[in-house]
Design a protein around this nucleic acid. Structure first.
Lengths: 362, 362
DNA sequence: GAAGGCCGTGGAAGCGCTCTCTTGACACCG
DNA sequence: CGGTGTCAAGAGAGCGCTTCCACGGCCTTC
């Protein structure tokens, strides 16, 4: 058992090319034992373990992941597939926050994040090949569009899978979603409590789950308060700035008497704000406005927007937890997790006061 | 050479567990030959190649990446390290756009993207271990903070490396950056051509490269136009909304005569907008405002902000190209790429007209 | 005091692939 | 007609690791 070899650079030696064999030799044990230390098997005596650990440090040994993966049949990494259309990707901090959540939880489990953003059909074919080839131990799918064959194919091949955002009906995978319906309901409840009586909504398109759910929540809220619903108070837009402006103008024409607007996104709420200002309506005195997402826009708007904040990071973390659960104990049970939202009240809905946001971003 | 085996599910057979050995047997050739087909070596006769390809399809064979990687000593994946502080991550679509650019270019090269977002010191230690262990063939580092030891360590170990955003002096790695200085200069040139004569700036902190470069560009622009610089026209903020508001109020107090403001970010420009409105100054009639980043905020502001648009996707693509170049021909030469910006003119700086953005996002 | 059990360790197989080296078939040349 | 070059194909080693199995030493137990 050599104490200090002049031939081996201590500490930060390059490590590349140093094999477990070399470590074992240095420590005067067999490769099997060295491997046991690496995988901290309980059946290694303390002295031997220490010796091996010293050799590892001395030689700067780093295990070869390919060799390990070849025999264990695990890759210790998970694929995160983002098929989100560009618009949503770029207009809110949804994407970075989600990735941060996922990344943090994966890191805690010593798993790696392989990011996959297919942009074309060709990409999607390759993607499937990739996921099926054992490159990853599991897959996180973010908001797939309805007819995507991917989840089905993955499940058929027995690859653990979780979906972020409620998947199209027919997909039986586990998923995590934000409680859009309840978020919208809370927004309406707030407007009602502020004394608003003719609450309109700028909704998202009905073929997108969040659009639909938030509209449903809006109606729930009115029912709850005993306010009559009215189709003339509902305008459908497409989550864009222009769509929001158009919808707001339309609402002002058909229902000039409205005293509040709940928009299904901050982008649309902010668009509504500019239309209202141009029309000479004051916010929040004449009309209260509430957005959704609590994006940077909400804070930057004038007046700052009351908005529904979603626990996006938490969604990422929960996705990983769910995936890990289905990997570890190969429980086939599909699970659904619904995360609750939080209403952040700002000036756009709260007459005559300078409300602080109550929480800072980050 | 069996034509059709009843034992093997054709087409979508699970593929897991099917080895190259099995393919070779099915095709009646040796494993070596099958491998040659896989790596399309030229020294395989057309008939044999076809036979092997048929067997691959029939068995649904997918190569085992670990086995391949073990012998080739390549991983065919690159690590993308994001150490960006949360603020910038979340306030602009910088991050998704960059990743999309990187992802697209990697896909074209059949490389995988391993995303690494260390959040703590511990994470960073593990990160380094990971990168040095041969998990990745190269590394893209996004905007590292000055004293990060990572680039040095990576270079010392001979791991190909490129940096996004100008790195701290001392780091000799190749990098891609956006021409912040020129972008700011173009903004000033525009304001001058609009007839503005007392142009102020809300600059970023001097210890951040973009902050510094944009301030320098602002000064360049004034020099170019023969307008005198004046320290009382320069306010330093921290890229936040609050910072922007504060700076704008300060400028209004000390230089009530200013007729234009160039802010180093849309967030700060938007904040300036709300302060100006509260002060009863009209934009753009009294005061023109220009932002930076062309974020969604620019379009949503009222009036919409003229802003400097950066080619973020292109930056991502260029990073990958640079990395690939340094991997393929192991050229040690460090290279610097500076990408040029584009000024998107909107109403906030263009008196008496309803300018269209000229380009849509996405 | 011999038989059995336990526990730490080593030997060795083998994961699925690539690639060097060798072989065999065939054509061409002197 | 033997020698040589060319080219497709096969044999086999080996990448670095995990893990099954066997083994030897020591402590119990009757």
């Amino acid at each position: 058992m050599p104490r200090e070899s002049a031939l081996t650079t201590p500490g930060d030696g390059n490590g590349r090319g140093v094999t477990l064999e070399a470590v074992a030799r240095e420590a005067g044990v067999s490769r099997a034992t060295a491997s046991r230390v690496l995988n901290n098997s309980p059946k290694v005596s303390p002295e031997v373990r220490r010796a091996v650990e010293r050799s590892i440090a001395r030689l700067g040994y780093v295990p070869n992941p390919a060799a390990r993966s070849l025999v264990t049949r695990r890759s210790d990494s998970v694929g995160v597939v983002i098929t989100e259309p560009t618009s949503r990707l770029f207009n809110e901090p949804f994407f970075p926050r989600l990735l941060r959540g996922i990344s943090g939880e994966l890191a805690a489990r010593q798993l790696q994040l392989v990011l996959l953003m297919p942009e074309s059909r060709t990409d999607e074919t390759r993607l499937e090949q990739y996921l099926l080839s054992g490159h990853v131990d599991g897959v996180v799918l973010v908001s797939l569009h309805g007819d995507d064959p991917l989840p089905g194919d993955l499940m058929r091949h027995g690859i653990p899978l979780v979906v972020g955002g409620r998947p199209a009906s027919g997909v039986t995978a586990s998923y995590v979603d934000v409680d859009n319906r309840d978020g919208a309901r809370a927004a309406i409840r707030h407007l009602v409590s502020e004394g608003r009586r003719r609450i309109a909504t700028i909704a998202g398109p009905a073929d997108m789950a969040p659009g639909l759910d938030r509209l449903t929540g809006y109606r729930d809220g009115l029912d709850e308060a005993g306010q009559a619903r009215d189709a003339s108070l509902e305008a459908i837009a497409d989550f864009t700035h222009e769509g929001g402006q158009h919808a707001m103008r339309h609402l002002l024409e058909t229902r000039p008497d409205l005293d509040a607007v709940f928009a299904a996104s901050d982008v649309m709420a902010s668009a509504a704000l500019s239309v209202l200002r141009a029309a000479g309506r004051s916010v929040p005195d004449d009309i209260a406005v509430v957005g959704y997402d609590d994006s940077p826009l909400a804070e930057a708007s004038d007046p700052p927007l009351t908005s529904v904040r979603q626990p996006i990071e938490e969604m990422g973390r929960e996705l990983v937890r769910l995936l890990a659960a289905s990997t570890e104990r190969s429980s086939q049970a599909t699970r659904r997790v619904l995360l609750s939202t939080e209403l952040v009240i700002r000036r756009s809905s709260h007459a005559g006061s300078a409300v602080q946001a109550g929480r800072d971003r980050g």
